[in-house]
Design a binder for these strands. Sequence first.
DNA 1: CATCGATGTGAGTCCGGTCTCAATCCTAAG
DNA 2: CTTAGGATTGAGACCGGACTCACATCGATG
Lengths: 369, 369
Amino acid sequence: MNGEGARRRDVTVADVAKAAQVSKAQAARALGNYGAVSDDVRERVLAAAEALSYRPNELARSMNTGKSHTIGVVVGDIENPHFGLATRGITDAAKKAGYNVILVNTDEDRAAEVEAVRVLLDKRVDGLIVAPASSVDTEHLRQVHQSGRPLVFLDRSGGTLDVETVAVDMAKISLQATQYLLGAGHRRIAFISTLRTDAPYRADTVLDSSQIADRLEGMRQAFLADGLPFPEDLVRLNAGDADSIRSITREVLRGPEQATAVVASDGLIALSVVEAIQELGLSIPADVSFLMYDDFPWTRLTSPPLTVIAQPVYNMGAAAAKALIRQMEGLPRAAPAQFTATLVRRGSVGTVRAAAAAPKLGQLAGEPA
Amino acid sequence: MNGEGARRRDVTVADVAKAAQVSKAQAARALGNYGAVSDDVRERVLAAAEALSYRPNELARSMNTGKSHTIGVVVGDIENPHFGLATRGITDAAKKAGYNVILVNTDEDRAAEVEAVRVLLDKRVDGLIVAPASSVDTEHLRQVHQSGRPLVFLDRSGGTLDVETVAVDMAKISLQATQYLLGAGHRRIAFISTLRTDAPYRADTVLDSSQIADRLEGMRQAFLADGLPFPEDLVRLNAGDADSIRSITREVLRGPEQATAVVASDGLIALSVVEAIQELGLSIPADVSFLMYDDFPWTRLTSPPLTVIAQPVYNMGAAAAKALIRQMEGLPRAAPAQFTATLVRRGSVGTVRAAAAAPKLGQLAGEPA
DNA sequence: CATCGATGTGAGTCCGGTCTCAATCCTAAG
DNA sequence: CTTAGGATTGAGACCGGACTCACATCGATG
């Protein structure tokens, strides 16, 4: 066939037009499928395009349509299965509607998020889905919103911003989960999260993350409803890497006032917490009860299988994309689908009585029966 | 301040130029940081840009520079932690070099991959990283390569295509792992993969995936080296969803000729295999030995912890991105860094029960009994 | 047979930048 | 006091499509 000397620049409408012996305008119309084109011309143009293996330059097309058919997704860390699943939901819904996804990780760093948003805006994405690193410091997102670019929040709210948000009712599920633990006799319940704060947690601490704040609020309410004091000292934020998480776990499980149950804020933390518990020679749930957020397949494989709070992550990602696309197409905001998390009771939560029977670390259960 | 009537179109160089009282060309030079510009002009332009909060339109910029500073990544499924990690490596390296990533999932479907590549090319990505669904049917990738667009393969080779590939030496690690199993007395070793094939596996089957083909080749060599027959009947491909994997697992573990060890081709399969083993009431490694590809954090949490083949997935992703960027910048191909997988011996591989009586094979499995 | 609305069609502008080219300034050398 | 040569500068082309507008064409209507 032809020699494929191919290094040269791409084939353009002009080339196709010339080959089909029509004007550039007509070729563009036939190719772009708009305007009026006679069958004869359309045929010739399409044939010529085929022959030259013409491919439209989406960049050029985007330039004057103003639509890039691309949405930007800003998440904390795609390596985290939670975001992996959510992203899958997003990309699936996006693809179905003819959109592509540019993905950016922020490592939950606000500066990185600001930069990410700016770059995506410069690339003229049609809309943004953001899992905000902070629900408090959201000036950059406010600007996006005000500029009129469609924006949807995932997982966490944007504080006072009136932006469509796809997330589960964390306070509610946290309340339920805590009631479950309280019902099993637990009073000393630890909560471990990587959320960064300036100072140790206190009741009046304003948290950056609406998600964590809501969870703590749910816990607090559960204790309050039962007229019990909320063990603030067992709320441990700033858990960083695996080592840090392990040492925090050891801390809350030691001493006369130790925790009888531990709640891990996400799957990554859960891994280190469980490891630390095993290292201490404690057994779940006999010595310590364990509960974690997010239901990953592997939580069924441990012995005992872990009790978790399952969130419809994939569906939430898909919903976020759909909501965004609706906005981009100028449709009215649909009624916000409220996603609900569910408590999946497997084997990692036991009654406190069982723990009292285990004399492992001295006063393991300093609980007056 | 100013009324922010803001719905209107974006601020352009022309606007900035007017505000700074210079020509569009000069404003562009000052903003784009190229050509010669006097200090005076630069200052005024920059000030004006700041005042108008000008942001360059990357689309327009890409149009005539020909570079979009975007790379396309085509993977099977971002939901799979393997790709999640690899993608993180890619995005990190890309970001460091000033590139963004457009992500597309293919579900290992060739048609989807063809479409993905075409869309990405239309969007004028500067380069592509692809984990090819098939190592055989690669015409679409050959075209990309021939058109001169930088291309790098991840995980799997592209068959006969001379494209830079970042992957571990699967045949080698598979050989080692198999030797390890053989050393523990296993002769009936099952291999389960989701790879789709037209017919059941036979020795001369041509597999779509170089990765799986290499693993099987490694196994075969290990058996051959010991003068043992390779149990082809235990090679089970086409494992689809979780149910299918479980039933396949049951099959290979039943009957007089059942397997004494099972190798899971990836983390997703591993989950279902282990579940099936547990459901059968068999224990690992006493009744069945288990080995899986990819080392995920949770593999340490099961009882016993799982013996795995660890791959430097993150680094491979980063390396793929770096190699691609090198190509895009016209630099010569660097010496291909060969990544090596390692066998992490934890507790899921034990000696074959029948052979367990033989003292000399007693300690082969390592510390966990 | 003249008229009108519905196509078809080509020339040319525009999107928002980059980049070429010729003209203009300046400054130091001759 | 000229003048050569580098630094600045502005006009305008250009990237590759989409889209406006004026100008045919054509069958149907009256």
